[in-house]
Write a protein that binds this DNA or RNA. Sequence first.
DNA 1: ACCGACGGGACCGCCCGTTGTT
DNA 2: AACAACGGGCGGTCCCGTCGGT
Lengths: 208, 208, 208, 208
Amino acid sequence: MKSTATSKGQRTRERIVERSAALMNHQGFLAAPMAAVVQAAGIQKGGLYRHFESREALAGAAFDFAVAQVRERLLQALQGQTNACDQLKALLQAYDGGAAEVPLAGGCPIMNTAIEADYADPALRSRAREAMSQWHDWLRRIVRAGIKAGQIRAGTDAQQVASVFIAAIEGAVMLTHLYGDTSHLQAVRQHLEGFIERELRVQPGEST
Amino acid sequence: MKSTATSKGQRTRERIVERSAALMNHQGFLAAPMAAVVQAAGIQKGGLYRHFESREALAGAAFDFAVAQVRERLLQALQGQTNACDQLKALLQAYDGGAAEVPLAGGCPIMNTAIEADYADPALRSRAREAMSQWHDWLRRIVRAGIKAGQIRAGTDAQQVASVFIAAIEGAVMLTHLYGDTSHLQAVRQHLEGFIERELRVQPGEST
Amino acid sequence: MKSTATSKGQRTRERIVERSAALMNHQGFLAAPMAAVVQAAGIQKGGLYRHFESREALAGAAFDFAVAQVRERLLQALQGQTNACDQLKALLQAYDGGAAEVPLAGGCPIMNTAIEADYADPALRSRAREAMSQWHDWLRRIVRAGIKAGQIRAGTDAQQVASVFIAAIEGAVMLTHLYGDTSHLQAVRQHLEGFIERELRVQPGEST
Amino acid sequence: MKSTATSKGQRTRERIVERSAALMNHQGFLAAPMAAVVQAAGIQKGGLYRHFESREALAGAAFDFAVAQVRERLLQALQGQTNACDQLKALLQAYDGGAAEVPLAGGCPIMNTAIEADYADPALRSRAREAMSQWHDWLRRIVRAGIKAGQIRAGTDAQQVASVFIAAIEGAVMLTHLYGDTSHLQAVRQHLEGFIERELRVQPGEST
DNA sequence: ACCGACGGGACCGCCCGTTGTT
DNA sequence: AACAACGGGCGGTCCCGTCGGT
């Protein structure tokens, strides 16, 4: 039986991770000074290093948390959608509607980390790669399932579609945060929705 | 005869900017330590601060240089292309073919800076915004010109097309650097080329 | 029982201030390098900046401490003196007798700071002004009290007397440190004592 | 025959000294950065070091110049005064009237240097000592001459009078610059003038 | 378990004096 | 003779991680 009981230390650790994730995604998982982290976490240095061996360990945990939080939001967006095309559109809507929410206050944690850790921190970069691969696999599986289910055209290259969606979304999220408005995200959403309807979705009466 | 003679200091300054641009685009315009910069530039700290008032000033100049270098490469790719659709395709090809070259060794300088300076450096962030806006305007003007010339369909939303191209390309460049391979960039290129041919280009015999 | 217990940090801070005051009054509150300060304070740079935000903050605290130390010595010299004229003479004696002691090892901190911070540090200069004003007020009050008590002649200009005493003493302290002997201080003391007896003190039998 | 012909280099050197004296007396003979000196002197570093071996050499020359300038002003004040008491009063008047003029913009150069160079620069401190001694000797000689001429009372201690005048004047100059007003200087002047009339000057009909 | 305090180190910017250039 | 350019070094500040105390 899986216990959900949490010790005091456990809860403290979670609080640290949660608050660090928000702060570090904004200020940078590498660039955020520990002083800011401990202040945001409501703890002191001595206490923090009881829960995490090193700054890198905390950054890793905070990154994972931030990624999980985003994934959670996207999963919720899929609720009730059975058609692959509708699922893809739901994901687009999720980004367009909630990009300003936490922890996206600092943009996509994966992209941020991919860029920030590019040179400085191979371990964190690896983590970003892995998270991105999972995100890519997820999209690819949605497309594949749609093909199998006769919802998406048979010849569709799932790998390519996944890449295009991720690239366009990530780029649009970056633009959204650079300018502070969502117009670019909306443009991408409209484009991809059109693409879904014209190129992916199996039209009624169309033979698969 | 117009002299292109440059003083010694001028040449040194250019050398610093050039080398700093490459290094800082890789290590980060904010994160790269001055020690690394001066080493790459082949100069000492004492000498560097004669040419740049501060680290920020150098970062700004290096950023501008990196952006100009990318723009130069893209301009060259447009050589000889008169049709707007072909111009867009040439730009895609330029990215796909030379993404690994300097100064793209560190990815797109605008995106890098947009993310790195998001919280830490408002001035640099402004610079990134401006550079991105120019890049966006450029694409929009190409599309608009294509519409006027009867090469691109009349109803096309130039603003939206520009946003989609930039978002997708930037995202793909990020993925390319995260994984070290260009497959995502190729996927985006194929997708956008298909989009150009199917949705933008005025077909022979089609009424504009 | 009222505890006078002080935390470890508190004691360290006091030690830093005390040692810095002595060193900075000698080497200059602005000119003394932090390396010398931390060495004298028996602490490392990293530890020092926990107690003081900046070098300026430390200089301010050290200055205040040095001034308070001088004031303390002068207050002790007044012990037991009830006649205003005798009080003035006691102050003169205090300077003449103990000018070489700490923290006067570097001369009067107020004068030192007034000159050193004249151009470089408006904040410290303000502090010096305030300390000097207090010192001036103190003397003026002594003279005024003497007039009220019928010990000093009625028509005496207290403000002027205070200015003369301070100017002469400060100048003499400067000369004393410049030459390393107290002859100038003694000259000033003799002059002012003669002035007190001839011009200030109400003679026995004299009507006020 | 003394030639007043000056070479170009000679004139440059004088300009440097003159401007440096004003600047360094304000910012500090040791504390003023060379960048400020060369800017004020209207010359470049490379050029300056052709005229002065080191920063110390320049500081010494500038100090001497500043002192000479003050001496010049005081000598002018003595013009036409034959009575020693009147000479002393003329000196007081000179200070009171022109304290704000150059190079006193930064206060008395001797006092400034005495304090600034106390710890940091023994050579400059020596220079200050010497200049102060000359100033002291000058006053002493005036008093001695007054005694001999029957203008000042026979028993007067010339050494002590010189010390009192210098101490009081220097202290008052310091206060004047600290507060930016001359009230303290006026107080000292009134006090010393009273002292001259009551204690020094041989009254008409008084036997010497 | 948590906090305050401290050591060591790295980093940026300044500043002096010299060297090549004009 | 003067200038621009550069090298080397220092000074102040920040920041991480640990250690003693509570």
